[in-house]
């Protein structure tokens, strides 16, 4: 290949023009970020990764590359139990029905969507034997006056949390000033240049 870029010129031509082989896709993982101490965890988006541990690293790089945060966590999308999505005055909790307990209780993290178009926020934890019971208990324990459009329930053990010894992942962030707009103040140089120009 003839390119202006010497690196491109060095690329080996594979000679292969057949369409690529299908389906070498990774799993889907949902990412939650806690921006400040005391603030709830908030859903930020997804990453694709071969496993939970890799998804954690990719989430760190995708969502907290610039702004520092207290911690993040990730969960396999298949492990998120989703309620109906409602609109107008209809609270998602109106559609949650009573479910009897069915054995051992484990903890579930509950997330609320307060406004359509915004992100889900962590609301609290309930102890339940299955996700539907978790929603029912959340309607008793975590429901407030605030309108909720959608509820997620995630078994706490399915979440990859940030551990104490992960925190050094973010230690280098304050040194990376070159990533911030504030590091590119050209105002003075521009001003003196414009004054030169006028002379």
């Amino acid at each position: 290949m003839k390119s202006l870029d010497p690196r491109v010129n060095r690329l080996p031509l594979t000679g292969n023009t057949s369409p690529k082989v299908l389906l070498d896709q990774f799993g889907t993982f949902e990412v939650f970020v806690q921006a400040k101490a005391g603030k709830p965890f908030q859903h930020e988006g997804v990453v694709h990764a071969p496993n939970l541990e890799m998804s954690y690293l990719l989430a760190k790089e995708t969502f907290t590359r610039r702004f520092t945060c207290v911690s993040i966590y990730v969960v396999d999308t298949r492990n998120v139990h989703v309620s109906v999505l409602t609109e107008d005055e209809d609270n998602a909790y109106n559609h949650v029905t009573e479910v009897a307990s069915s054995g051992n209780k484990v903890s579930f993290e509950i997330f609320h969507l307060f406004k359509r178009g915004k992100q889900h926020q962590h609301a609290g934890t309930v102890e339940a034997s299955n996700p539907n019971e978790a929603l029912w208990l959340a309607s008793k324990q975590l429901k407030t006056e605030k309108q909720v459009f959608n509820i997620w329930a995630i078994h706490t053990d399915d979440i990859r949390f940030t551990h104490q010894d992960d925190l050094d992942l973010w230690h280098t962030l304050p040194d990376k000033k070159f990533r911030d707009a504030a590091a590119y103040k050209g105002g003075d140089k521009l001003k003196s240049f414009l004054e030169e120009l006028k002379k």
Binding site: T14, N16, K20, D24, G27, E30, P50, N51, M54, T77
Partner: peptide, 26 residues
């Protein structure tokens, strides 16, 4: 295309049958 082809072995090596591609939630 070359990047895709040359990186394929990495993705193959990382592929884990326990995960599954599904549509993201939001």
């Amino acid at each position: 295309r070359i990047a895709e082809e040359r990186g394929r072995w990495v993705r193959e090596a990382l592929r884990a049958p326990k995960t599954e591609y599904i549509t993201p939630l939001a």
